[in-house]
Amino acid sequence: MRPGILLDVRNLTKHFPVRAGPFQRPSGKVQAVTGVSFHLSEGESLSLVGESGCGKTTLARTLLRGYEATAGSAWFRTGEGEVVDLLTLSRRRLKPLRRQMQMVFQDPYSSLNPRMTVQQIIGEPLRIHGEELGIATREARRERVRELLLQVGLRPEAARCYPHAFSGGERQRIGIARTLAARPRLVVADEPVSALDVSVQAQILNLLLELQQRHRIGTLLLTHNLMVVRHVSDRVAVMYLGRIMETAPAETLFTSPGHPYTAALLDAIPRPDPRVRNRSRIKLSGEVPSPRNPPSGCPFHPRCVHARDRCRTELPELEHIVPGRQVRCHLWRELDLKGAATD
């Protein structure tokens, strides 16, 4: 693994067996994530973009060993400079590493235990990993929670309250404080703002961005919202039906998308300009196909306006077109796709 790389995921695959009938016989599989590869540098922010059901959450939970991967590897550089494969590490060796990889959850309501005070919630990682974090006493924990609350923009007095006393945005700040408490090297944020009011989303994103840069945390941001991505990410990977369709630096992706699916997503971004009316839009018809029964060839072909015969039979490779840029499309040379309007 090259120096400076924090996480290198290779060919990660997660298929869920489907069981049916009275004897629970396996009768198929849901191909939630198939052959996903990407890397993340230390302190870098990478976004995984895709519609609901494209496998983002499965990917995140498999990476953090919430699920066991079907195949693939995920090399992680620990704080001690060791490189380990997260997917095959034994549970016992994984446990001390948990501290270095944290998750920010989508739903700020179900991710905080309603029966614990904020002090207890944020103090939990401190209690579990107190030794490594150099926080041994109750007093030290209280002091650290106070510090963390100030860092995420909450009053230190909040420590004594229960989560129900806070709004969605404030709860998400509490969740972020809990994440930071462990001093992670990698943070996986699963739709961190999609459950929040639009007016609060920017605040939380700014907070995440600021903390990521200040503490040099490698951040994997999963979202369906492209505007979020442009705001905070260095690089973007677009996922569709469990596969990566395109990766590119954020700005490049917005100005010149390489994949028809990316172009369609960009076109769907609402434009707050009353003069732009009746513009021709790329319509994405139909639903995302079921990952239990994915289409042959390119997974996007049933909804692609450019689809040809070749797309229906042959799965395109993820090709390097320029350094740092990959596209999974047979036609990337021919298509001249429109990017998002720059404003």
Partner: peptide, 17 residues
Amino acid sequence: QEDYVLAAELMGAGRAS
């Protein structure tokens, strides 16, 4: 199924805890 239980698990909390 609650996220806060998953959060504790991913945090490295033991089963008893």
